[in-house]
Amino acid sequence: MTYVYLFWEFFKIGLFAVGGGPATLPFLMDLTQKYDWYSMADLTNMVAVSESTPGPLGINMATYAGFHAAGILGGVVATMSLVLPSIIVIIIIAKFLANFSENRTVKAVFFGIRPAVTALIASAVYGLFKVALMTENGLAIKPLILCVIVFGLMHIKKLKSWHPAMWLLIAAVVGIVFRF
C-alpha cells in the first residue's frame, strides 16, 4: 500500500513543483506531517546527500525520500512518479504548443507563481533551520556558528565557485574534530 501512496504523493509533487529541485522541498516537508516515512531531521540528511551526489537535486531527494519510506523499490517508485507528470506535460507541449513559453496566459500564470515559489522555499528552509539548528537542550551553538561562518565564506569571490560537496566535506571534518 505504501507504494500506492508514494506514487500518488510524488506524482502530485512532480505536477506542482514549479521551478525544479529546490521547489520540491516544501512538498517533502508537508509529507513529514502526513506520513511517518521520514522525519524533519532526516530531511537535512537528504538535502546533504542530494547536494553532494551527481544528478538533479529533485531526483536525488525523491530517490532518498522513497528509499526512507519503503526501501530500494520505494526509491524507484518515488522517482518514477515524480518524473511522470513532466513526461506527460512536456510531450503535450512539444506536440501541440509550438510557442508555449511565449503565450500570454502562460506568462501571466508564471508571473504569479514564481515569487510565491520563492516564498514557499524560504518557509521550507526556515523549517529546516529550526530542525537542524535546535536540539532538545535549545540552540545547537556549534552548527549555528559554522553555518554563519560558511555562509560568509561562500560570498568571498574566490570561493564562490566551490562545489557544495566541498563545503559539506569540510563541515564533516569540522564536526568530527570539534565534537559537534
Partner: peptide, 13 residues
C-alpha cells in the same frame, strides 16, 4: 558529529 557539522552547512547552502 560529522552530521551535526553538515547540518550547519546545509543551512548555509
Amino acid at each position: 558529529h560529522a552530521m551535526m557539522g553538515i547540518k550547519g552547512v546545509v543551512c548555509a547552502l
